[in-house]
Design a protein around this nucleic acid. Structure first.
Lengths: 369, 369
DNA sequence: CTGTTAGCGCTTTCAA
DNA sequence: TTGAAAGCGCTAACAG
């Protein structure tokens, strides 16, 4: 049962193929009578226009590319959902691709997306400069960047006020009385991470606190925590590895009394490390992290976080892209705002943190090895 | 800077357009010499074949549709990732669509996908019979179902042994000494839910335990828990609503000593309800639920779950679909196996569950109203 | 108010 | 070993 095409419809309705096209697209006047005949024929033959043929003729394919590092990262999951909800209303589809922060894979998917003639692109670029991406831009493909920006690319970026958000988070901790606040980030080729690091530093400086480089810790971004699933294909390091990074910090003579986690992918690993080191949160150490999680409010302790409007971020990116596709002028939008959600993982530091207890923990940790 | 097409390449290389096509696709012999000229021209012009034109000519678009109810459900997120990893190797892309378990939206996305001439479809269908889906199947579009099956559709289904998994979960609880085990499910038009309910019932019967219908509770499947994000557009009920459903159960004269949650979307809501009712897990009530979460191992208590191989499920579905697209014969694959992950949310029931403590809780709850 | 026709960029017979 | 040319299904001048 081959699908009918517009010629079949035209024949069935006794009109020309052009008329069929025009009643479908409402692109020129058609008398009520013929319009009805065409509609009937369409129904009778169960005709569905072929978007591929249309795409070839018009150069509009009604598909956009959505490129993220990892769809399992809840940040991107929500963003992708926001995008889809937005574009589906205009009968657009999204082609979803993952890069794993790997410039090679990014390159590969961009080539495919280019070949597919997507009408536009929403991308969370890897940190690396991408000639392929620049080429797409030069070829006239509308592009919107999300979360971070790609070197050399002139395309609107939808992101949050990372520097300010981090500044607020650290200031909150300082207000609680903390003076040694660690900062955990992942890849520093990702602009969000460096921006948040800057916010950390500015807050400390403005408070007249020392900026101790040893409190900056980097960990593998591909760590998602419990890894209940088969993620071996993309996971370089496993659980103990991520935990170890933090444990080095926790056995410092002057252990930090609080930790700021700049990446949602690192939060679970941090919580694991607390547990492995026997640190209680917030009694022994406070925690504030970027991104909320649906389990955060009922975790023990409920997590204080910097929430990002992820779904909305996707929506806005999609709205902007659709405008660009429609040839409308667009202006660079302002940062979205992060929001401090105070729950219970931050508390004033206890005096004991800096004395006996700290040493006890250090002993426990060494004993565990 | 318009993109070069095969004609440009042909001209530049001094050969025919047909030859260009053949060197690109390796579809007939071309002398080493001309092949080289073509390759050079391709490089010089930075030529990229247009997949849309190719799709029109060959009727293979190298796109497959992936239809899930909600990409933010971690089950589908992982599945989608498994699919993408699998198909990207064959230079296929996925078009991702959400249905929200809404037959109308399902219908809409299926129409779009059909128009886009996808080479195949992987779908977690809503419970409703879909003429559009059946039409696609009849039109010869290869289809693989995941997680659940659509009424009347004859397409391979990749799922887990739901009935058996539920049976194992309940048997485990019975082995611990539980006799009143509640079963929380969502939409009973979804086959996974009814299958798990059947497993619950069989385990009880085989153990000679009473099957008390009042222990079967249905809750809104669109509940994701803390909803840190703007999900208003798809969420019918809010937090208190979901919690209430459970609280009715917990104030029963003979409160269950354990609860089996048949949907990962209901787990967070259950944990909220525990908290709201002042029930400690596992001291007052045991919990076992379908699907693992990355936060489950470090939750308080660490959650005992029935883990599903989600990523692998996607991979297998994609492998099967690619075979179908390539015209290979495929046979219905066996169920994937769920795995009981024992952590700490299940414990033997305490005598007090059935006496004083129970009434205390009932009082607390009524007092709270 | 409607029909004819030339593409869109590629694949694929059929010839040579 | 290669080329010419007819589509794939649709849109959009151009004509009437």
């Amino acid at each position: 049962m081959a699908r009918a095409n517009s010629e079949d419809v035209a024949r069935h309705a006794g009109v020309s193929i052009a008329t069929v096209s025009h009643v479908i697209n409402g692109t020129r006047f058609v008398s009520e009578e013929t319009r009805q005949k065409v509609q009937d024929a369409i129904k009778a033959l169960n005709y569905r226009p072929n978007a591929v043929a249309r795409g070839l003729a018009t150069s509009f394919t009604r598909k956009i590319g959505v490129v993220v590092s990892e769809i399992r990262n809840p940040f991107f999951t929500a963003t992708a959902r926001g995008i889809e909800d937005e574009v589906i209303r205009q009968r657009y589809n999204i082609i979803l691709c993952n890069t794993d922060e790997d410039p090679e894979r990014e390159d590969a998917v961009l080539h495919l997306l280019g070949a597919q003639q997507v009408d536009g692109l929403i991308i969370a670029p890897t940190g690396a400069r991408s000639e392929t991406l620049l080429g797409l831009a030069k070829a006239g493909v509308p592009i919107v960047q999300i979360d971070r920006s790609s070197p050399g690319l002139d395309a609107p970026l939808i992101d949050v006020n990372n520097e300010e958000g981090a500044y607020q988070a650290i200031s909150y901790l300082i207000g609680l009385g903390h003076t040694r606040i660690a900062c955990l980030i992942n890849l520093d080729v990702i602009s969000t991470q460096t921006e948040r690091l800057q916010g950390w530093e500015r807050a400390l400086r403005e408070a007249g606190l020392p900026v101790d480089e040893s409190l900056i810790v980097r960990a593998d971004p591909r760590f998602f925590g419990g890894t209940p699933d088969a993620k071996a294909s993309i996971t370089r390091h496993n659980l103990p590895g991520a935990s170890e990074v933090l444990q080095g910090l926790f056995t410092l003579p002057q252990r930090p009394s609080a930790i700021f986690v700049a990446s949602n992918q690192l939060t679970l690993g941090t919580l694991y490390a607390f547990r492995a080191s026997g640190l209680r949160c917030p009694e022994d150490i406070s925690l504030i992290s970027f991104d909320d999680h649906d389990w955060a409010p009922i975790f023990n302790p409920p997590l204080t976080v910097m929430r990002q409007p992820t779904y909305q971020l996707g929506q806005i990116a999609a709205q902007l892209l659709m405008k660009m596709i429609n040839g409308e002028a667009v202006s660079a939008p302002p940062h979205l705002q992060v929001e401090l959600i105070k729950r219970s993982s931050c508390a004033p530091p206890r005096a004991s943190n800096f004395e006996g207890l700290n040493n006890d923990h250090a002993k426990e940790v060494s004993a565990a090895k």
